[in-house]
């Protein structure tokens, strides 16, 4: 029934579409396909998918153009799927309104995890003030942060930093977004603030010999707070 999520794949390569369909349907998604950008846009308007997977190298329009047009009237979560792996491409897409970015060839498990993450309607903390991931727990009401049960003292800035990452846990948050949220709109180009504070935060949050780090750096793009099911 409509318990299933609908995913729209916009990609001109038929092989990719077929295989994605297999992967997604295995996870109980209903799958729609579009071959061109134009078709993709009208499909989003008419069929109202819950999530969109968008390729950048489309025959009729640039993927980014599709994204920008889409964002003019829709907030549907968009996952970019592309061979282009340069940080500039990724940042450009994320700034244009994409919610996450996966490069081809991709790991299906990773893809599915990110899809799930971007489909979350509300950021963590809006309905339930408690957040947890691995050994980290945050109470948004009381502003307390615990690591393995022990409380950790964070400065106001460090807390704000952690909060925005936690609210978007599982998704990548660009440098620009973080700077804007934590330091204000004038600080968008001051990446050194971010680096320094991330280092401080890491020292307080991460466990030195843990197999997986919680705060993952997406080179050249931003940061991601990992949720347990993700890699």
């Amino acid at each position: 029934m409509s318990d299933k999520s609908t995913a729209l794949i916009i990609d001109d390569e038929i092989q990719i579409r077929r295989l994605l369909r297999v992967v997604l349907e295995a996870e109980d998604y209903r799958v729609l396909e579009a071959e061109t950008g134009q078709q993709g846009l009208s499909d989003v308007a008419l069929r109202r998918p819950d999530v969109v997977l968008l390729d950048l190298g489309l025959p009729d329009m640039e993927g980014l153009a599709v994204l920008k047009r889409l964002r003019e009237w829709s907030h549907v979560p968009v996952l970019i799927l592309s061979v282009r792996d340069g940080p500039e491409d990724k940042v450009a897409a994320l700034d244009a309104g994409a919610d996450d970015y996966v490069t081809k060839p991709f790991d299906s498990a990773e893809l599915l995890a990110r899809l799930r993450a971007i489909q979350r309607r509300l950021p963590f903390g809006t309905e339930d003030p408690h957040f947890q991931s691995g050994h980290l727990a945050i109470d948004f009401n009381t502003h307390t942060v615990t690591v393995k049960g022990r409380e950790v003292k964070l400065t106001a800035t460090e807390y704000a930093l952690l909060k925005i990452l936690a609210q978007h846990a599982g998704k990548v948050v660009t440098h620009k977004q973080i700077l804007r949220e934590v330091w204000g709109p004038n600080a968008e180009s001051q990446s050194q603030y971010l680096r320094v504070y991330m280092t401080h935060l890491r020292k307080k949050i991460e466990i030195p010999d843990a197999p997986e780090k919680l705060l993952k750096t997406e080179s050249g793009i931003g940061y991601r707070l990992i949720l347990p099911s993700q890699k």
Binding site: E13, Q15, I16, L19, L20, V22, V23, A26, G57, V83, R84, K104, P105, F106, D107, S108, A109
Partner: peptide, 25 residues
């Protein structure tokens, strides 16, 4: 570069996705 990159990596992505799918099946 983009064009060549695309041509090389797309089939590879298809193979990878195929492997994942098969693995589940």
């Amino acid at each position: 570069f983009d064009s060549v990159s695309h041509e090389l990596k797309t089939p590879l992505a298809a193979v990878q996705a195929g492997i994942d799918a098969l693995s589940r099946q």
